[in-house]
């Protein structure tokens, strides 16, 4: 698969996650944020339903608002009666749609929160306790899907390796065939030599 294919599959997966999340709860909107590992910012990645699609790609400061808290704590939560409240700098509000209720769950991958799934103004609710559990389970499934995609991408992406630099480093500590590590390294070098001579 090419990088473009991965990008397209990732986009479809993200969109599918928010579509399913919205339909599970008959919600006005669902959105997904991914944490930028460099800055900790939340990046608005996809939205289904109400909200400004052109805001996809915008960034929100780390640790603020409901999405920010869910990302830092790794705990899902529900907040009701928000319309009577002014909550500042919240990512959900910044999407252009002000909800009355927000439900949010973290996307956890490798013991770390990599994003937040939010459901705004759900209409079909069994109970808050059931909803939060269902969203938590769905977020886990969504995170597994993202993780899988990321693993495939990492295993197929050509890594930028400077061959001459690597050869230079190997030359500096040339294996002499003494220890088991040297034996293995020499075998690998011989194999590389053979492989390259084929082409």
């Amino acid at each position: 698969m090419s990088t473009e294919d991965f990008d397209s599959t990732e986009r479809k997966l993200l969109q599918s996650i928010v579509e399913v999340a919205r339909h599970m709860f008959g919600a006005a909107a669902a959105s997904i944020f991914l944490v930028d590992p460099e800055t900790g910012e939340l990046v608005f990645e996809a939205v289904s339903g109400e909200g400004e699609k052109e805001l996809v790609g915008s960034r929100f400061p780390a640790g603020t608002g409901i999405a920010g808290w869910v990302a830092t704590s790794g705990q899902p939560m529900v907040a009701d009666d928000l319309q009577t409240t002014k909550f500042d700098h919240d990512a959900a509000e910044s999407t252009g749609y002000v909800p009355a209720t927000i439900m949010a769950a973290p996307l956890i991958r490798f013991e770390e929160c990599v994003g937040v799934l939010e459901v705004l103004d759900r209409a079909e609710s069994r109970s808050d306790l059931d909803d939060i559990e269902l969203l938590g389970m769905f977020a886990t499934q969504a995170a597994c899907g993202l993780e899988f995609l990321l693993r495939v991408r990492q295993s197929t992406e050509p890594r930028s390796i400077d061959a001459r630099a690597v050869l230079g480093r190997i030359g500096d500590r040339l294996p002499n065939g003494d220890g088991p590590r040297d034996v293995a390294a020499l075998k690998l070098l011989a194999l590389a030599d053979e492989l390259l001579s084929l082409s």
Partner: peptide, 21 residues
């Protein structure tokens, strides 16, 4: 109690929140 708990929120308001928190 962890469902629809009235809790303090920004701006001196009270919001009903759900979660083990």
């Amino acid at each position: 109690r962890g469902v629809k708990v009235p809790v303090a929120w920004a701006g001196g308001k009270v919001v009903r929140s759900t979660g083990n928190s």
